[in-house]
Structure formats: C-alpha cells, structure tokens
C-alpha cells in the first residue's frame, strides 16, 4: 500500500472520522484548561479529579443516565471539595488531594466490582475508547469546547491576573476565590468529557503534556494556549493513525505522541540554552 492510501483508507470508516474529530476537540479543550493547570502547579489536581469521576461514572451507568452527568457531579464535587478542605483543614493541598483521589477511586472500583460481568467495560472506562465515540459524544465535546473558549475569552484579563498574582489581584478587589473555583469546575468538566476518548488514567497527560511543551516554546500566555492546542490536535491525529496502523490502544498512542513531542522539545530547547551560554 502506498503512503497516500495508508492515510486515506481509514477515513472511509465513520468511526475513524468521528475519532479524529473527537481527538481534535479534546486536544483543544485540554490545551485551554491545561495551560492554567500547568502554570498554577495543579497537575496533581487534574489526576485526582479524573480518578474521582469514576464512582460518578459507575453510578450513572447503573442508573442508566448519561455518564457525563454522573462523572461531572463527582468530579466537580471533588474539585471544589479539595479547594474547601485545603482552606479549612490546615493540611497541605497535596495531602488532601491524595486522600480524596484514592478514596473516590476506591469507591468507584468497589461499585464497579459489584456489577456482574464488569470486566469487559472496565478497560473502556480506565483507558478510554475514542474509536467507539458516538455522534452524541461528539456533540457534547463540541458544546464543551465552544463554552470553554467563550468563558476563558470573556474573563481573560481577570483569569490572567488571578493566575499570575493572586495576592495583587485579591488586594485590587478581584474575586480570586470564585475565579479559582470557576477554573476547578472547567477542569473537572473538561476531564469528564475527555474521559470517553482517553480514559481516567491518561487524561491528565492530555491536560498537562501539551501545555508543558508549549511553555518551553513561547513567552506569552495566550500563545502558550494556542501552541498547546496545536500540539494537542496534532498528537491526536498522529496518535490515532498510529493506533489504527499498529493496532495499539488509541488513548495510549495519543499520549505517547504527546510525550515524545515534549521530550523532543525539551532536548532542543536545552541544547539551544547550552549553545547560547557556551
């Protein structure tokens, strides 16, 4: 088969085209929230929130309601709970996150194991199945991406100030705590909507890796989001083809492409720094 056919032949399948669109939308959404996550040092929260969505997903599955709704409730509840507990308990946030992360995930595993014949679906929940994405899932993803970009654009200067210098912003009267909570909700919803594509275990990479790669490359926050989105979409497309051609899990394949890009960019920027200082 020649290379052109290799690229074109999977496009004959509707499921592959849907998967491409879904990966692109997930890539863009995760880049937007991921840039805030990386700069606020909240990657661990992203990981916790994705695992905390699990019991919500299972309960929604048992009740027969859309899993996005169950997952969102559990994820948003945990995300805001981490914020509130950190402020009130006097514990460091990483301890609070560790406790809630494991506790919620254990609840999900316990509920899941109580369902007869659960093994088949478990891998889908944990590692995602972008090739099985439905038209309804795609609609939800498009709505999320649009809302997310609109909210961030409308509150851009406030979010930028509160992210960069929460003390200065708070003293000037900006509602820093409410902006923080808004970001947590956006992170939680993005994670839940992305779960279908990449799964609970790997979604944190979709949030963190493209944004971290972008931070190595640019000097402005708005450009960082743009570059992260380009990296996210590109990795989604390359990863999906690799998954199709090599017959490996799609979520893992996308995340591996992102990781390789990160390592390559890190190596190139380090080399540049070293040759500049030599």
């Amino acid at each position: 088969m020649n290379p052109i056919d290799l690229l074109l032949s999977p496009l004959g399948y509707d499921f592959f085209v849907r998967a491409l669109l879904a990966s692109a939308l997930v890539g863009i959404s995760c880049a937007v929230v991921g840039s805030f996550v990386v700069l606020k040092g909240m990657s661990f929260i992203g990981d916790a929130v994705s695992h905390a969505a699990f019991p919500g997903v299972v309960i929604a599955y048992l009740l027969g309601v859309p899993i996005i709704i169950g997952g969102s409730i559990a994820a948003i509840g945990t995300a805001l709970g981490i914020g509130a507990l950190t402020r009130r308990s006097g514990l460091r946030s990483d301890a609070v996150i560790g406790v809630l992360f494991a506790g919620m995930f254990a609840l999900g595993v316990a509920l899941f194991s109580a369902i007869p014949n659960f093994v088949g679906d478990l891998l889908g929940f944990l590692f995602g199945d972008v090739l099985g994405i439905s038209v309804g899932d795609l609609a939800a993803l498009s709505l999320l991406a649009t809302l997310l970009i609109a909210i961030v654009a409308l509150l851009w200067k406030e979010l930028l100030y509160a992210t960069f210098d929460p003390l200065g912003a708070g003293a000037a009267g900006l509602p820093v705590r409410r902006l923080d909570d808004l970001l947590l909700v956006l992170i939680a919803v993005t994670i839940v909507v992305s779960l279908q594509a990449v799964g609970i275990v790997l979604v944190v990479a979709m949030i963190t890796t493209p944004a971290a790669t972008a931070q190595l490359l640019v000097r402005r926050f708005d450009r960082m989001i743009g570059v992260a989105a380009v990296i996210g979409v590109t990795s989604g497309v390359i990863g999906l083809y690799a998954s199709y051609l090599l017959d490996v899990a799609s979520g893992a394949s996308i995340v591996l492409v992102e990781t390789l890009l990160f390592v390559a960019v890190l190596a190139i920027t380090r080399l540049r720094v070293r040759s500049a200082s030599a």
Partner: peptide
C-alpha cells in the same frame, strides 16, 4: 517563569478599573 510580558503585567493594574467582560 510565567509566560507574560512586561506590558501585560502592567496592564493588570487596569483590570479592576476596566471591569469584567
């Protein structure tokens, strides 16, 4: 290390005066 320019930082001083949206 935050990716932000000098001008953007100074513009933050105007943010509360401009108001949201």
């Amino acid at each position: 290390s935050f990716p932000i320019t000098v001008e953007e930082v100074v513009a933050m001083g105007r943010t509360p005066l401009i108001g949201p949206l």
